[in-house]
């Protein structure tokens, strides 16, 4: 589904993502952990072409992104993204947030977009909030709207960039529940998170990143309980 080969992203002379290679299979849930500044978010943003890559290539389905091919529009239709800061459109109601891109990008009719939106908002448990504005919602509700908004485009892959980091502790659970539901439904997901519990329970594979490189990769039980690399052990010692 996703193949990444020697992907590099530099900021000035510093390589935020340094010759990283990995694959993600269809339906797989891959969690990326690592200290802040290790390049996790940058890696995710490259997959959605929000960051240009300086070297290597990304193949998503049949689309290639590299230094020359920049068919980013197509890639973004395949890949949905949810952000730490929600980034809902504050001038639109909840249902309008979910409908906008369906209308202007997918060219769906108003009724079709609305139907799809209602279905998705029901799935994330927000049927009663469809006419609210984002500023009237709690953080957890905003993030669930953001997930519904991304899903409305029928992405084949969902990227989650620290989606619970800006939430109050009591709201983290409701967002993780929605993500678990998605994973159970067979969605291919890449998740940058500090929620080790979620990673343990849901991940098919965990990648540990440091200084722009993937230091270690493995199934959760192996990586968390029996890390091979000293650096992984050091990091887990601090967060667990």
């Amino acid at each position: 589904m996703i193949t990444v080969k020697n992907m590099t992203r530099r900021f000035g002379t510093m390589a935020a993502v340094d010759e990283v290679s990995f694959d993600v299979d269809r339906g797989e849930v891959v969690v990326i952990i690592g200290p802040s500044g290790s390049g996790k978010s940058t890696l995710l943003r490259c997959l959605n072409a929000l960051e240009e890559i300086d070297g290597g290539e990304i193949i998503i389905d049949d689309f290639i992104i590299d230094k020359r091919h920049k068919d980013i529009h197509q890639i973004r239709l395949e890949v949905g993204m949810v952000f730490q800061q929600f980034n809902l459109f504050p001038h639109l109601t909840v249902i309008e947030n979910v409908m906008l891109a369906q209308r202007v990008v997918r060219k769906r009719s108003k009724a079709e977009a609305r139907n799809k939106g209602m279905t998705l908002l029901a799935q994330v448990g927000l049927t009663d909030k469809i006419d609210a504005f984002p500023a009237e919602l709690s953080g957890g509700q905003k993030q669930r709207v953001a997930i519904a908004r991304a899903l409305a485009m029928d992405p084949k892959i969902m990227l989650f960039d620290e989606v619970t980091s800006a939430l109050d502790p009591e709201m983290i659970g409701e967002v993780l529940e929605v993500m678990k539901m998605l994973a159970a439904g067979g969605m291919t997901m890449m998740v940058v998170t500090h929620e080790i519990g979620f990673a343990r329970e849901m991940a098919d594979r965990v990648l540990f990143m440091e200084a722009g490189k993937i230091i270690e990769s493995g199934i959760p039980s192996q990586l968390f309980d029996n890390p091979r690399q000293q650096r992984t052990r050091d990091f887990l010692g601090k967060v667990l």
């Binding site: 929000l50 973004r76 952000f83 459109f89 891109a101």
Partner: peptide, 10 residues
């Protein structure tokens, strides 16, 4: 973030 959200939706 508004630009990124819009662009990520295609």
């Amino acid at each position: 973030g508004q630009y990124e959200a819009a662009m990520s939706l295609g």
